[in-house]
């Protein structure tokens, strides 16, 4: 329980750092660390598949993409940011944590342990037999992503 609490506090801490840090590279790495910790939480809570995907895709692949993209950019003019954010974010964050704690405290006793529904089974069974339509959606998301990249990085035609 203590390890889990420490991990969750780590997730929140590094997520806040990802938002608050001004250096985008450090921000991306903080996000990766937060995902890594979350992946470990998934493992500890008996969700190994979720853990594998969280660590390999979110902490791994997406971080690589972020760092690659950052490497392709140059430092430009200073971007002016509203100072309001510096005040509003901590306030909203503290308010959110307070509300979240209160809501969860009242919910914890009431919410029953998750019933093992029809979705139970091995990973393959769940994916192929239980949630096949999600795969169709995934294919659509991947197609949309590929065509978006093709469209946004297309060469302008002659008459443009």
């Amino acid at each position: 329980m203590i390890v889990q609490t420490a991990l969750l506090i780590g997730v929140v801490l590094f997520s806040v750092l990802a938002i608050a840090l001004r250096d985008v590279l450090r921000s991306a790495i903080s996000l990766a660390v937060a995902s890594l910790l979350l992946g470990i939480v998934f493992f500890k809570m008996n969700a190994p598949y979720a853990g594998v995907f969280e660590i390999s895709v979110v902490a791994g692949l997406i971080t690589v993409l972020f760092i690659l993209t950052i490497a392709l950019t140059r430092a430009g003019d200073e971007v002016r940011e509203s100072r309001l954010v510096n005040w509003v974010f901590p306030l909203v964050f503290v308010a959110f944590v307070a509300v979240d704690a209160l809501v969860m405290k009242s919910l914890l006793g009431k919410v029953p342990a998750l019933a093992a529904g029809a979705e139970a089974g091995t990973f393959g069974e769940v994916l192929w037999k239980g949630r096949t339509f999600d795969l169709v959606g995934q294919i659509a998301v991947i197609l949309a992503g590929v065509f978006a990249v093709l469209a946004l990085f297309r060469k302008r035609e002659k008459h443009d």
Binding site: F133, G137, A140, V141, A144, F147, A148
Partner: peptide, 27 residues
């Protein structure tokens, strides 16, 4: 994506097809 969202009968399907339509619309 929009048609999928209209035809699904489960909550996660709603989310998934919401995203399909949204990702295409950003581009």
């Amino acid at each position: 994506g929009m048609n999928g969202l209209i035809l699904v009968n489960d909550l996660f399907g709603v989310y998934l097809f919401l995203e399909v339509a949204a990702i295409a619309s950003y581009a």
